[in-house]
Simulated assay, not measured.
Amino acid sequence: MTTTDSTTSKIGWDCVALDCADAAGVAQFYADLLGGRVEADPDGDWFNVVWDGPRIATQLAPNHQSPDWPRGHQQAHLDFVVVDIAAAHERVLELGGVALDPVEAPHPKPDRGFRVYADPAGHPFCLCRPTRDAWD
Rank of each mutant, 00 (worst) to 15 (best):
R132L: 05
A76K: 05
E39S: 05
D136N: 06
D136Y: 09
D5M: 09
E94Y: 01
A23K: 04
I56R: 04
D5N: 15
A57K: 08
G36V: 08
F125H: 00
T7H: 14
R71W: 13
Q59M: 10
E94L: 00
A105N: 10
V82P: 05
V26L: 15
M1A: 07
V49F: 08
D45R: 10
A27G: 13
A23R: 04
F29V: 01
G12D: 07
Q59H: 01
P120M: 08
H123A: 00
M1R: 08
V83W: 11
E94G: 00
D84F: 11
W69Y: 15
A99P: 10
W51C: 11
G72M: 09
H77G: 00
H77M: 14
H89Y: 15
P42H: 12
D41G: 07
W135E: 00
D22P: 10
T3F: 13
C128A: 12
K10E: 08
D119G: 11
F47N: 01
G97I: 00
A27H: 09
G97S: 00
V26N: 00
D22H: 07
L34P: 01
P67K: 12
D14P: 02
Q74H: 06
A31Q: 13
P124G: 00
T3Y: 12
V16F: 13
A88G: 00
V81P: 06
W135Y: 03
R55G: 00
D45S: 08
A86R: 14
P102D: 02
K109V: 11
W46T: 03
P70V: 03
A23N: 04
G72N: 09
P54Q: 04
L78M: 15
V83G: 01
L33C: 13
G97P: 08
L60S: 15
T3S: 14
T58V: 12
V38H: 10
C126Q: 08
V81E: 14
P42T: 09
G96T: 02
F114K: 00
T2L: 10
D19L: 01
V49K: 05
D22T: 11
T3P: 08
A86W: 05
T2H: 12
Q59G: 13
F80S: 02
V38K: 06
Q65L: 12
D79L: 02
A31H: 12
A76R: 03
A87Y: 08
Q75T: 13
V83Q: 13
I56Q: 04
G12E: 13
L95P: 10
R132V: 07
Y117Q: 01
L78R: 03
C20H: 07
A121H: 01
V103E: 04
G122E: 03
A61S: 14
L95S: 09
G53L: 12
D32Q: 14
V83F: 10
A118D: 01
D136E: 10
W51N: 03
A105H: 12
A121W: 12
I11S: 08
W46V: 01
L18Y: 06
A99W: 06
R55K: 13
N63G: 15
L34Q: 01
H89N: 08
A27C: 07
G72L: 07
A105Q: 13
